[in-house]
Design a protein around this nucleic acid. Structure first.
Length: 443
RNA sequence: GGCCCCGUGGUCUAACGGUUAGGACAGCGGCCUUUCACGCCGCAGGCGGGAGUUCGAUUCUCCCCGGGGCUACCA
């Protein structure tokens, strides 16, 4: 039987980097084995699930380049099937109705020395799965080995509300079973839920899938990753100017490694090399610094036309290719493009600190000399402009920066820009002179 | 509190009883240089603690400590 995995996000929020990592690992597994990836939306919590979130998740997966073979399957639409299975458990005594409240459960445990809650069947109420008093349920996990859960400690879990709508731990077991899922790969926060799902499967007489619980992702403060940790959602990553291929590569490294030295990997390498057995057991911290670095590496590899296309999509404007090419080697994210090279597209206001720092002493004279050189450069190409400007430096007997920095501030408004000769040529003689003249007038 | 998982430099990780504990990001220093970056070179920094097993423990066992997850008629 071929491998079938699933990614089953709950649409109670945007897709976060942890969910993206889970999706990626499942995808790598499917693509590396000729198996299938099923997308299932776990929306049984009607209160918190929204269409907007579903759309966001789908959009995030699409942007990440993670495609699926089946789905999306909406769990809520399977209610009838869930009810049918629920009734089966009720009929054969594996489940019972109970009106016990959370407080009742607490009281029971207090009274019975912390033992798991066992209720008495009632005519109505929520449905609880009956957990055997003796024995234990062992979770065989590919990553963590065996984990044993003694039944005495387990409460009879509520698997359906009083109105008959089913709860997560029940729905997941049924849906994975019906979808023919062979490997359940999900976050470690589900490890404690697994015995409940195993018990449901057992009550149904079904074979359980293979499980693999991925280590959790934490924020820089060591706490569970959340919105407070900055660019945590996939959409935010996109808006911050990260490339999907860089994000894929980066998150693949969170809890997994190809070998002892590989950091940058193509999708093909990841797919071919991914192995659950090499997934780490300990939680990882999302480190945006490293993502930035990795993103920069990918950015520099992009053909200029492709880089321009990505920038144009992000910024919503065209005609960026020339500027993109000049800025490429200095960017780590797409978002850094505009502050760095926006002046090549449209004039930017002066950064007053930059102006104050550069426009002093003989700066005006140096700039004026540079202006004349630029005005006379013929032909107007990088080579000639560079020669002309270096000639100014030589003639005036100053440091190169004495001439280049005022010129840089004059045309870009900032002390930071792509190469000055390339920038001047990209801007064109007329525009350059116009900006220099304005700066001269201001100095 | 109960149950469960985890523990290699600041961060991501390699090592599956014997290595000068390897790589990457960040940091620091240098080179390059028109700015900022990139790139290159170098430096610093780690096995949470304690017992035990063993000729020998980062690696195996136990205890402690630390972090995390679950403990909903959420997922």
């Amino acid at each position: 039987m071929s491998l079938r995995v699933r990614f089953a996000p709950s649409p109670t929020g945007a897709l976060h980097i942890g969910g993206a990592r889970t999706a990626l690992f499942n995808w790598l597994l499917a693509r590396g084995s000729g198996g299938q990836l099923v997308l299932r939306i776990e929306d049984t919590d009607r209160e918190r699930s929204t269409d907007e979130n579903v759309a966001q998740i789908l959009d995030a997966l699409d942007w990440l380049g993670i495609d699926y073979d089946e789905g999306p399957i909406f769990q809520a639409e399977r209610a009838e099937r869930h009810r049918e299975m629920l009734q089966r458990l009720l009929d054969d005594g594996h489940a019972y109705r109970s009106n016990a409240t959370a407080d009742d459960v607490k009281a029971f445990k207090a009274e019975h020395g912390g033992r798991g809650f066992r209720g008495e069947p009632e005519a109505d109420g929520a449905v609880r799965l009956r957990v055997p008093d003796d024995g234990a349920t062992v979770v065989h996990d590919v990553i963590r080995g065996d984990t044993r859960f003694e039944h005495v400690h387990l409460d009879d879990p509520v698997i359906a509300r009083a109105d008959g709508s089913v709860l997560y731990n029940f729905a997941v077991a049924i849906d994975d079973l019906d979808a023919g899922i062979t490997h359940v790969v999900r976050g470690e926060d589900h490890l404690s839920n697994t015995p409940k799902q195993l018990l449901v499967l057992e009550a149904l007489g079904a074979e359980p899938p293979t499980y693999a619980h991925l280590p959790l992702l934490h924020g820089p403060d060591g706490k569970k990753l959340s919105k407070r940790h900055g660019a945590a959602s996939v959409q935010e990553l996109r808006d911050a100017g990260y490339l999907p291929e860089a994000v894929r590569n980066y998150i693949a490294l969170l809890g997994w490694s190809l070998d002892d030295s590989t950091t940058i990997m193509s999708d093909a390498e990841m797919i071919a090399g991914f192995d659950l057995a090499r997934v780490s057991k300990s939680a990882a911290v999302f480190d945006e610094q490293k993502l930035r670095w990795l993103n920069g590496r990918y950015l520099r590899e992009l053909p200029p036309a492709e880089l321009a296309a990505r920038l144009e999509a992000l910024l919503g404007r065209g005609g960026l290719e020339q500027a993109a090419e000049l800025a490429q080697e200095k960017m780590q994210t797409l978002a850094e493009f505009w502050p760095l090279a926006g002046f090549l597209v449209e004039r930017q206001p002066y950064d007053e600190k930059a102006w104050a720092k550069v426009m002093r002493d003989g700066a005006r004279d140096d700039l004026a000399a540079a202006r004349d050189a630029i005005a006379a450069a013929e032909p107007f190409d990088v080579e000639t402009v560079e020669a002309a400007l270096r000639g100014v430096v030589e003639a005036r007997g100053v440091k190169p920066r004495a001439v280049f920095q005022p010129l840089r501030v004059a045309i870009s408004g900032s002390t930071i820009s792509p190469g000055i000769f390339e920038s001047v040529v990209a801007l064109g003689r007329d525009e350059t002179l116009a900006r220099v003249d304005d700066a001269l007038a201001r100095a």
